[in-house]
Simulated scan of single mutants.
Amino acid sequence: MSVTDDATTYDVKQIRRAFGGLRPDLARFDGPGGSLVPEVVADAVAGALRAGLCQRGGPSAPGLLTDEITLTARAAMARFVGLGDPRGIVFGRSMTALTFDMARTLSADWGAGDEVVVSRLDHDANIRPWVSAAERAGATVRWLEFDPVTAELGDVGPLLSDRTRVVALTAASNLFGTRPDVAAVSRAARQVGALVCVDAVHLAAHAPLDFSALGADLLVCSPYKFFGPHLGVLAADPALLERLHPDKLLPSSDAVPERFELGTLPYELLAGVTAAVEFAEECDMAAVEVHEQGLLTRLLEGLAALPEVTVHGRPRRRTPTVLLTVEGLTPLELSHRLHEAGVVAPPGSFYALEAARHSTAGEQGGVRVGISAYTNEEEIDRLLTALAHVVST
């Protein structure tokens, strides 16, 4: 399947045909919570289940097939995140679980006087694992704040010292869409010898990832955000992983990356990961980004004509993700009103609790509108029409 004819053409109609979950009666803006899955991904998962997989290793055909599925998925994810060596790809139950595991492993060497930096802008899955690990080790937590009006991140420089062990930062806010200058933060952290953990969960669905350009030491993402099945991925230089020794079962492999993968992997889901990456490559994530930004401009211009609607956050560089509220309605009430008009836009703070509390939205958050690769102009207009009707009544 080719969905781009040249650098300026993006065939959203063809992309939409790949998603069986799209329905004519619903305009879907819930992609940030998990994208729809193209049929090729569902087929890949089902095909792997039907193939009669077994454990990896051994001379049998099922074992060799399981090996092939695992190694192919590692190679696909390495391409997707821009990591040169597939041995740096770790699979886990979720990004949250992988981050907790990594925080526990790294913090074994921390003590009083050590410091970690977390961002108030982040999803809690890139905050709480580091805060909990620091508290157990007696280390100090330093908070990188953001402007509550613009949702722009502050300066990390004053928070860094030669005792900083980890800087945890999102590549894109799942609440406001803010895309911080991760590379600049990484350069500053590297000058004091700190590791940088980049949460790329939200960005991965909207733009190409480049592990080296971000300056990450650890990068985490979730395939179910970009067309794939539910599991998590951690990417790192294999040389870094070789230096770390997580808790593991004695008979399990001590090789990298297997030493970080607790228990048996969901091999059928790994087949789905490969299919999802291949689908993203065919879409061309750079073309996806251009398409989505065009729709975002259309959305923001339409929202500007509805003064009763408040858009929270005005970041200069952002994903096509907008948090909004309407005075007089709770986010849940607004979400219900939109759904009555066939528009799916969920309410809440979406686990970015610190960000919501610190923003103009408050702890209850708002209604999140997420544009995806399969969103079209008609759906944007349908959303704007529904909002206009809500505020007029």
Rank of each mutant, 00 (worst) to 15 (best):
T150E: 09
S35H: 08
R104W: 05
I127M: 11
L231N: 11
A42F: 01
R163G: 01
A188Q: 15
A356T: 09
R128F: 11
A356P: 00
A255R: 15
P257V: 03
F100H: 15
Y224I: 02
A134N: 11
L36Y: 07
L249V: 03
W130G: 08
A287L: 13
L262Q: 12
D30Q: 04
R187Q: 14
L26N: 00
D199F: 04
P315F: 04
E242Q: 15
A361P: 00
D30G: 10
D122A: 15
E145W: 10
A356V: 07
L250P: 12
A18C: 11
G263H: 04
G362F: 04
E340Y: 02
R298H: 14
S161K: 10
A200H: 02
D217W: 06
L234E: 04
Q191R: 15
P59G: 12
H230N: 14
G157S: 14
P266M: 09
L269N: 13
A44N: 01
G20P: 13
R243I: 07
V12H: 04
R368N: 05
Y224W: 07
R314A: 15
F80L: 13
P24I: 01
V40Q: 14
L175R: 06
G215Y: 02
A345M: 06
R316K: 14
R357D: 11
R79F: 03
V149H: 14
T360P: 01
G58D: 11
V166N: 06
V167N: 08
N126M: 11
D5W: 07
L98E: 10
A207C: 06
L353F: 12
